[in-house]
Design a protein around this nucleic acid. Structure first.
Lengths: 265, 265
DNA sequence: CAGCAACATTGTACGAGGTACACTGTACAT
DNA sequence: ATGTACAGTGTACCTCGTACAATGTTGCTG
């Protein structure tokens, strides 16, 4: 097994982290001039993560890329935890928010899902970071404001708006995480899905009793055949998004002045 | 930031892993008798993970608990990756599967969700393991067979059955992961949600411009007040499950002989 | 302008974790 | 009886985050 470190945000000193996120620095620097900047550190770390995954982001590696010694980074960032917070908030800040004001709610929700999918496309590592305490930075704020507003005016109360958004984002992140996992598995096992199945098939055929698991055998075969692999991220996303929209419909379309579900695809 | 290692299943030699999962050992042992057993190793590792989280499961720790030296474990298990595979499959095998044959589909699906929630309640670490290539062991097979059969006879085709199940399980796992993350965050930051907010509030008030983020401010406050915290796992689960059932309804209730959605709660 | 204090940067080093490797001893098959 | 396969052990290597102390630089204060 390969250990893929899953990091967590906001594990450092909260106040210090907030100051960093909002670049709230009191500009009274007395010592030597700084050779780098927080943004440079965050940018380089993000580039590494984008290209080689979060594992590749080590303090040593980031430092090397910047031409300094590892410990130098600690004058810019209290620790790796805060660096990840900064990376994530910067990634949020870089998202393209499409304006869907006035459009049917299904299209608005779909746009949100797509924006987040695009984020995870650009920064797959972002999906693997746990955000139970999100980085309360400017990027996160803009994102939250934008995304909530997509649910505004649909007759939902405030708590429901948050619920819907959380539910949607959880789905997109779960999809992205699965896709990212599948990609990593594929990459560092030097074995694609087909090879993996072919390697497993003979022994599996011996120990697996088709009579004991009739439904599993039938459905597993059908699903595998349908998308040439055990897991098809795109298919799971498309299926899930349709379920989500239908799931929201009961909450939204019952409301007056949302025009029914005539926008259903 | 605290690094919580997120492990991955099935990263070792697939054939060897399968043999271990199915306990497919050719019994020709010539040397000294073994002092332990695979099951003992798996059991101890699971106990540690249950009690202290997946981080606490190190080869050294497991060995110590068993009264042997770390390297001894490697005669039972090729590596840590395979140990986690075995732990996960054993956890699956230990699940209680309630028989809901003949019951309305909403109840059947709800039962599935509850069974999996119970799994993650018992073994929170299980939610944090990525299973893009699931351990193809007996526990997983039984689980898959049981869970698929809940979707059987509802008029879904084979691929749809798999889609629905994958979607449902993804949701429950995402919830459990979020809950587990929240719990870890709470635990090892020595700071509960309220303290965290109180620590952040003053600075946040200074940098956060309510006028710039009106919806975020309003909804965030409402959501926070509704469930005394930024994130309420139980609430998110309940909300999400209702959405899932409504989302499935379009797929299932349109079919004949499912009795409409009279079972809707 | 001198000198001090704050700060940036660096080198060294520790501890945790997975596991490779060589060695010792045991028990079964011949 | 003996050799071989295998269980268990001790040592050691590598990677990673980061603590600590030393060195050098800058700007503020007198």
């Amino acid at each position: 097994m390969v250990v893929v470190p899953t990091e967590r945000t906001s594990a450092g000193d909260p106040i210090r982290t907030l100051q960093l996120l909002w670049r709230d620095s009191t500009e009274r620097r007395r010592g030597p001039r700084r050779g780098l900047s927080i943004d440079a550190v965050v940018r380089v770390a993000t580039d590494i993560a984008d290209a080689e995954g979060l594992d590749a982001v080590t303090m040593r590696r980031v430092a090397q890329e910047l031409g300094v010694v590892p410990m130098t980074l600690y004058t810019y960032v209290p620790g790796k935890a805060e660096l990840l917070d900064l990376m994530l908030d910067a990634a949020y800040a870089g998202m393209v928010h499409t304006d869907t004001t006035g459009q049917p709610w299904r299209r608005r929700v779909t746009a949100l899902a797509e924006e987040n999918t695009a984020l995870f496309d650009l920064h797959p590592w972002a999906a693997t970071i746990s955000t139970s305490r999100p980085p309360l930075g400017p990027g996160q704020m803009m994102k939250y404001e934008h995304e909530l507003s997509a649910f505004d005016g649909l007759g939902l109360d405030d708590v429901e708006m948050d619920d819907c958004l959380t539910y949607l984002l959880g789905f997109v992140q779960a999809c992205a995480r699965a896709a990212s996992d599948a990609h990593t598995a594929h990459h560092d096992s030097a074995m694609n899905d087909q090879q993996w199945w072919e390697a497993n098939a003979p022994l599996l055929a011996r120990v697996f009793d088709e009579k004991a698991y009739p439904t599993a055998a039938r459905v597993g075969a059908a699903a595998g055949a349908a998308h040439g692999s055990a897991y098809d991220p795109d298919h799971a996303y498309a299926f899930g998004l349709r379920r989500i929209l239908d799931g929201f419909a009961g909450l939204i379309d019952d409301q007056p002045d949302n025009g029914g579900d005539s926008t259903r695809t």
